[in-house]
Design a protein around this nucleic acid. Structure first.
Lengths: 180, 180, 180, 180
DNA sequence: AATGAATGAGTCTTCATTCAT
DNA sequence: TATGAATGAAGACTCATTCAT
């Protein structure tokens, strides 16, 4: 049922997706949908929470393997992490871009948590970084990672090695930060 | 009237904006609004077209000044270009993220045109680039520029010099491409 | 189960009371509720029937003690009868005011039966009354008794001796009828 | 439109009346109904307010003619007042018995105002009444008047002179209060 | 050309009722 | 027999769009 919602939100956006369509796609009756999620907004929130959990778990695997990695390896891990979450993210962003209250609230804490974890990672690789430097770098890394889904989609279409290019860019950026 | 639509789309998203609200904000009657734009979708398309025109005109000023510029100067020009269009872009993206058919269709041509112009620019700076290399680089530059509005917003909040960081990153990237 | 229904109907009205809420309050499953009452309307009817039975039984005690009573004593008995049924009546009235078909039908027979019994009582006290006179008087007595629950509620709030006032009024009325 | 609502509320009760049915009965589209009354509750409130206004205006005519009237004449005026408002009252009571928040709040002030006006009337006829006595009497008079619509309905059916009986009862009661 | 009241299709949501376990 | 998840008809309400003035 969450999957049906995720697919439709990602495809058509939050408002253009009807609860009826979600139920239908999930092969359930509209009443059943409402037994699990008391409102459309609640469904979106559940969707976002699932995405947040998966993102956290996925990033934990990055953190596990990070110690001792080179910048290039770290870039690789991060890009793999980002690519793995593509479908979940699209649904989450659909709800976000429709300014659903319960989700807008959840965004900042999630983003801040991810940034903090990246900052910690960077400082473990270069203890001389100040928190401000590490934070700024984590914001930049987040933004570079934001390219990845779009580049991957473009790559499929154009055949150009775009994700690799992002990988290189990210590695360069991490190297610059870590070697300061 | 377009301005009223742009402001509201940017603020609340496409679906959450009602035609009545647009008319009211424009100080016009709903009937008058429909005399200019036969449907909400048509209004969104007009909005997108205006954005596309303005973006093209703005980028023309980048092209004008580009010849003889250093990578850093070019990065600067491009980022200025991006920042200048912020409000128009938000409205255009609101309609895009709601998957309005007439606009989704317009997206690719616009993006491709921008990419082509960036590719031309790059090849004028480094004629040894192949079209594929120049195209890939233009995609990457487009993605780096996509960071800018988000970073600018973040910068206001955090006080960290994020846009400068993007400027540096973009300059580095352009330099790498141009100096190959 | 009937008690749960009575309490909720009285408290929130017929339509605002859900079968689920009744089952929950009765500590039963919704399925079990439907094993006893095949529909919400059937439950309301059972509730009304229980009220009708209790009202009949309660009035029988008035009839028992009526012979030889003075008008004041009879008024007292009747008002006591009315006050004793308050909670049951509220539920019955909730269903009535929602115009539940099965109950609207039951109303008139019940009312007519009560009126007839009051008329009999009056004629036993004053055999010279015609049936029309006795019937009209019984209607009036029924209406005077209808004041009682409202006055009792008001009395709690205002502290004024309203029920006593009704008792006096009823006694006067009975006296007038009986002494004709 | 208010009339359509009044008729249906009175006939079927608040919850059993659908907005669609009201619109249909008023010969309007559902959307038009919502242009006048933003919600079903708002419609009920407007209905109640109209009833309150009419009741106040109607009672003002009682007050006008009251000075110098005998108890019997006053009873007559009041009963006429009550009978004149029958249809409006039924709709108002339907909404009341469904515990519509916005209306329940309006009830007490209205009732208190009516009682106060009756109390003033009584004290003008018998200045030796204390306020408590006058208030208690006004409550009783309100209750006696509450009989009237029911008796009128009954009278149509049974042919018995029930409203006259109430008139007599009310006159007696007023006389008792005024002659104390 | 300008207006804005009227329209009704389409949306979210509730809840009486059923039925497989 | 008891359970409660599943069902879907029905209701309140919104809003893009039309059209008489």
């Amino acid at each position: 049922m969450l999957d049906a919602g995720a697919a439709l939100f990602a495809d058509r956006g939050y408002h253009a997706t009807t609860m009826t369509a979600i139920a239908e796609r999930a092969g359930a009756a509209i009443g059943s949908l409402y037994q699990f999620f008391p409102s459309k907004e609640a469904l979106a929130e559940a969707l976002f929470d699932r995405f947040a959990e998966r993102a956290a778990a996925s990033f934990a695997r990055v953190e596990e393997r990070a110690p001792g990695s080179s910048p290039a390896e770290l870039a690789d891990l991060m890009i793999g992490h980002k690519l793995g979450l593509r479908s979940d993210r699209e649904a989450a962003e659909a709800a976000l871009s429709s300014a659903i209250a319960g989700i807008v609230e959840r965004r900042k804490p999630l983003r801040d948590a991810v940034r903090a974890r990246i900052a910690v990672l960077l400082r473990s690789m270069n203890p001389s970084l100040t928190w401000d430097e590490a934070t700024a770098a984590s914001v930049m890394i987040g933004q570079i990672l934001r390219m990845v889904p779009a580049l991957a989609a473009d790559e499929e279409e154009s055949g150009l090695p775009l994700v690799d290019e992002a990988r290189t860019l990210l590695a360069l950026y991490i190297e610059r930060v870590v070697r300061t």
